[in-house]
């Protein structure tokens, strides 16, 4: 184990480490703590110049109610779900198929296709912006959540395919071969032998894609214009423009927008980290 376990150090150092941990965490999360405290600060505090002292009272209920009552943030959140959930289902479903194809079959162009998916994942969004916006307009899907879903599904399929393919490669190939010898069709091998084993990969990818797509801001501004389809990231930015200097509202809105992916992360932490660190341990 590296560094040396703290238990081997003197009690003095151990106590110091245990003291340092919460202190370091406090400093690390200072911007977040500041926003969280501001979101429950009475509006009067800000007017009186009490920006980062102890709040004069708890106004969490008022501030959060005001955010939901006076702004369309509820609608924005709903739109984000309308974009995120179908994208997760679509991208994971498509990549189960593509990942299986690239992991199990040897055919000409296999590696080229695989690296095309990998490379697609790294390209700058801007090179896609004009044509994708144009295509979405032509399909009549501009300014709809569906337009965003289709693009996200296609783009995320790149990352998901990389993930699924590597996961299936790690499964024992003998399972598939013995099924083939028994004459099981390729589709049934996928459906009844491989797919059940892919549950952990599906879970990991779902949380990751949920977070990526929920937090997308660029496409939300390029493919959507009106409130009725706007996801919460773009919505929050436009609200920030309206709430000039109303930092208690901006803060409360930020917390609301950040909550779903944060909740997702805490609920599915193991899967999330397993997905994110894929490849960090071996080749």
């Amino acid at each position: 184990m590296f560094p040396t376990p703290i238990q081997k150090a003197s009690p003095f150092v151990q106590a110091g480490y245990k003291l340092l941990l919460p202190l370091a965490l406090f400093l690390w999360l200072l911007p977040l703590i500041g926003v969280a405290v501001t979101s429950v600060r009475p509006a009067g505090d800000l007017a009186a110049g009490n920006y980062f002292g102890i709040p004069s009272g708890f106004a969490g209920v008022e501030n959060y109610t005001a955010v939901f009552r006076d702004s369309p943030i509820g609608l924005y959140i709903l739109n984000s779900f309308k974009v995120t959930i179908p994208t997760v289902i679509g991208a994971v479903a498509l990549s189960c198929l593509t990942g299986f194809a690239l992991a199990v079959y040897k055919f000409k162009g296999n590696l080229i296709l695989f690296f095309m998916f990998v490379a697609g994942n790294f390209i700058p969004f801007q090179i896609l912006m004009v044509p994708v916006r144009d295509l979405t307009l032509k399909l009549g899907l501009y300014d709809t959540t569906m337009g965003l879903v289709l693009f996200h599904v296609a783009f995320q399929t790149g990352f998901c395919t990389l993930f699924m393919r590597n996961f299936i490669k790690g499964l024992p190939f003998a399972l598939i071969e013995s099924a083939r010898v028994e004459g099981v069709s390729e589709w049934r091998i996928f459906r009844y032998i491989v797919l059940p084993l892919m549950r952990p990969a599906i879970a990991a990818l779902s949380v990751l894609i949920f977070t990526f797509v929920w937090n997308d801001y660029f496409w939300a501004t390029v493919l959507v214009q009106g409130q009725h389809a706007m996801p919460v990231t773009a919505g929050l930015n436009s609200l920030n423009g309206q709430w000039v200097a109303a930092w208690h509202l901006v803060s409360a809105g930020s917390i609301v927008a950040a909550l779903p992916p944060v909740a997702m992360f805490f609920l599915m932490q193991r899967h999330f980290i397993a997905g994110l660190t894929l490849g960090a341990t071996k080749g």
Binding site: T98, G120, I123, L150, E186
Partner: peptide
């Protein structure tokens, strides 16, 4: 089989990315 499995994902990827 591999091409049938690839078809839907590849199609989306070609249309929206490539």
């Amino acid at each position: 089989a591999p091409w049938l499995f690839l078809a839907p994902g590849l199609l989306m990827f070609v249309i929206y990315v490539l």
